[in-house]
């Protein structure tokens, strides 16, 4: 059996015919689906599948952006807090505008615009601090992670920011309805993933991200505007956090200091499980999509079966992440 890698700059190619690096995540996903189907007959029902996909969408949309950031040699720890802050801001702005604008399309568009602009600005701030100010991505985003988390707690005065009930009903279709029975979050996730895959593999920007992550000096000497490309990855990620938040707000209709907790870890984990190299230089968006699905399937299976307590979800995810990185290294050692 031989496997050829389609992508341009695949890292190590396994010597023994099967390329674990490519097949690993896919095999893991198939195994999980089989395990799930054997353990619970409801697992493959349309309802459950839709539910899993819709819940994956938030992390998934963010993880696609994270793939570019990591491929270009960066990291963003602030996305979970950023989502919470944007959700809080969006709710606050819409509630404030409600008396003058009334329930309707204008106030919804205002909310959507707020989320998109906030995401862009937040990503831009991260990016500028990292590129122009030359501060480590880890430090910058650790800082902004704390700042956004604290800001949303302050906006909510330590409690919960709730969307006006009428508005909430009006917004609900953003999460619950869709086209042909497929809900909006799934559709948006699919579109984002497809665009992300095309951008990564088939545009100059994707190639630049890989080159920068691999060796930013070479990129600089090759007339690539390294700072600007890096900035774009953070701005893009911020925008995607905004998009994910737009659909997250109607789901619960509220935001608090507990919103989006650990999303950054799930997003980073999904990227790494999918085969993107943590140090940068190689990334694949389809892998990230599979990584997201693997993570949410584990949670779903634990919820559907009694064998293992769902409280252990985090532990199992942790094991998977470490395993994924070990596999990545082994395929590198064969180099």
């Amino acid at each position: 059996m031989t496997t050829t890698t389609e992508g341009g700059a695949a890292p190590a190619k396994a010597r023994h015919g099967v390329n674990l690096h490519v097949l690993g995540p896919i095999l893991a996903l198939i195994a999980l689906v089989i395990v799930g189907a054997l353990m619970n007959s409801n697992f493959l029902s349309a309802g459950n599948v839709t539910n899993v996909l819709a819940r994956s969408a938030f992390i998934g949309i963010i993880a696609v952006g994270m793939t570019f950031v990591i491929t270009a040699g960066g990291l963003d720890l602030s996305v979970g807090s950023m989502a919470a802050f944007i959700a809080g801001l969006m709710i606050l702005v819409m509630n404030l505008a409600l008396p003058s604008m009334g329930v309707g399309l204008p106030v919804m568009l205002l909310g959507i615009a707020t989320a998109l602009v906030a995401g862009l600005v937040a990503g831009w701030i991260n990016g500028i601090l990292i590129t122009t100010m030359r501060i480590e991505a880890f430090i910058v985003t650790l800082g902004t992670m704390g700042i956004y988390r604290s800001l949303v707690t302050w906006l909510a005065d330590g409690g919960t920011l709730s969307l006006d009930f009428g508005l909430r009903t009006a917004l609900q279709p953003l999460y619950y309805s869709g086209i042909l029975g497929i809900s909006w979050p799934i559709i948006v996730f699919a579109i984002v993933a497809i665009i992300g895959e095309v951008v990564m593999r088939m545009t100059a920007f994707g190639r630049y991200c890989a080159a920068i992550g691999s060796n930013d000096q070479v990129a600089r000497y090759s007339s690539v505007n390294v700072n600007r490309m890096r900035l774009y990855t953070y701005v893009g990620l911020g925008l995607l956090v905004g998009i994910a938040t737009i659909m997250y707000v109607p789901r619960l209709g509220s935001a608090s200091s507990a919103t989006g907790v650990l999303w950054e870890l799930e997003a980073i984990a999904a990227v790494i499980i999918g085969g993107t190299v943590l140090k940068g230089g190689f990334g694949r968006v389809w892998g990230t999509v599979i990584g997201v699905l693997i993570l949410s399937l584990i949670g779903n299976i634990l919820n559907l079966t009694d064998a293992v307590s769902p409280y252990l979800n985090g532990a199992i995810q942790g094991v998977i992440i470490v395993l994924a990185v070990i596999l990545q290294r082994e395929s590198k050692a064969g180099d």
Binding site: R207, Y221, S222
Partner: peptide, 15 residues
């Protein structure tokens, strides 16, 4: 500074 050693010839050539 000249070549991305971990990338292919084509990717390096056209960078």
């Amino acid at each position: 500074r000249g070549l991305v050693l971990n990338m292919g010839l084509r990717e390096n050539l056209t960078l």
